[in-house]
């Protein structure tokens, strides 16, 4: 079980309200990702759920039970920290066993569970090492092991991959996703990286300044962003925004078009421009095009699209993929 509901919770530090009243239902077994720029309150929100911070008002329920006043140790949640927060003076075995020892579990049962977790996480050969002797990825797995042995109601991840190098990050992303498929336990995952959010989440919660901008599946957020912020935050490279005369006939204050929804041509099209920088990634080419009236637009082309700095190109937006926003920033 792992159904968590947040009901009108707020958090104030001193005089600053970092989380205005907020409601959120986290369903049992789902992988939910809190994403947003740094300082958006996503980590604070996670810590409120963990119980590492008190909510200023409102209530938190875990599996239908009131948890607002319950200390973190008793909420039945497990957390994986950004710094891994392993106990440096304990072996890997003792690290993983620690929560079980705190729960007063019997030694034989502890051993069984630790061995089991180590097998799942490929840590069996490292059980008697200290965290200091492990690589970043191994440490990360120990932190996960420490979380899974408890069989918690939900896992909380606080930017767990940000200290890993790029290649390892992709691997661990997959491992965590697989873990979720196997355990089917609720996971709440905080990140500032929208790629992690898109690839791992069942549902994404986009936060800005403590306010939930939108909740939805990755594809919902991608295709139907509720406002300019979400539209700009989700997707890479970022959506192009256009305002002014070009918007004219579409009855919106601002329109947005993703780089992958601009058709490119060297001979004809709606908007003319010159290539400023072209980034060849092999599979794709991203062109930063300096247009005459609309500023710089980013467009995606095939990997082999043959242009270079200074070339003239024409861009045509796919009409049905244009996002329209009102003066209030909301989608129309």
């Amino acid at each position: 079980m792992g159904h968590i509901s947040l009901n009108q919770i707020t958090k104030t530090f001193g005089n600053v309200q970092v989380i205005p009243p907020l409601d959120l239902e986290i369903r049992d077994g789902e992988f939910i990702v809190f994403v947003g720029p740094s300082g958006c309150g996503k980590s604070t929100l996670l810590r409120l759920i963990a119980g590492l911070e008190d909510v200023t008002s409102g209530e938190i329920q875990i599996d239908g039970r009131q948890a607002t006043e319950v200390p973190p140790a008793k909420r039945g949640l497990a957390m994986v920290f950004q710094s891994y927060a392993l106990y440096p003076h304990m072996s890997v075995r003792k690290n993983i066993a620690f929560p079980l020892k705190m729960a007063g579990m019997e030694k034989s049962e502890i051993d069984k569970r630790v061995e089991g977790a180590a097998r799942v996480l490929n840590l069996t050969d490292y059980l008697d090492r200290r965290p200091g002797q492990l690589s970043g990825g191994q440490r990360q797995r120990v932190a996960i092991g420490r979380a899974i042995v408890r069989e918690p109601a939900a896992f909380l991840f606080d930017e767990p991959l940000s200290n890993l190098d790029a290649a390892l990050r992709v691997n661990m992303r997959l491992e965590i996703s697989e873990l979720h498929n196997n355990l089917e336990t609720t996971m709440i995952y905080v990140t500032h990286d929208q790629v992690e959010a898109m690839t791992m989440a069942d549902r994404i919660v986009v936060l800005q300044a403590g306010v939930i901008e939108q909740v939805g599946t990755p594809l919902e957020l991608y295709s139907q962003p509720r406002n300019i912020f979400v539209a700009g935050f989700i997707g890479s490279p970022k959506m192009n925004f256009i305002e002014g005369d070009a918007v004219g006939h579409s009855e919106a204050a601002k329109i947005g078009i993703r780089p992958e929804h601009l058709n490119l041509s060297t001979s004809e099209g709606e908007w003319a421009g010159t290539v400023n920088v072209s980034e060849h990634l092999g599979s794709d080419t991203f062109l930063h095009v300096q247009t005459e009236k609309l500023g710089t637009l980013t467009a995606r082309a095939d990997g082999e699209f043959p242009v270079r700095h200074g070339d003239k190109v024409f861009l045509t937006p796919q009409e049905d993929k244009i996002h329209r926003f009102g003066a209030d920033g909301l989608s129309i």
Partner: peptide, 8 residues
């Protein structure tokens, strides 16, 4: 890392 509990 401060809850009312840890503060007291």
């Amino acid at each position: 890392m401060a809850t009312a509990h840890s503060r007291s």
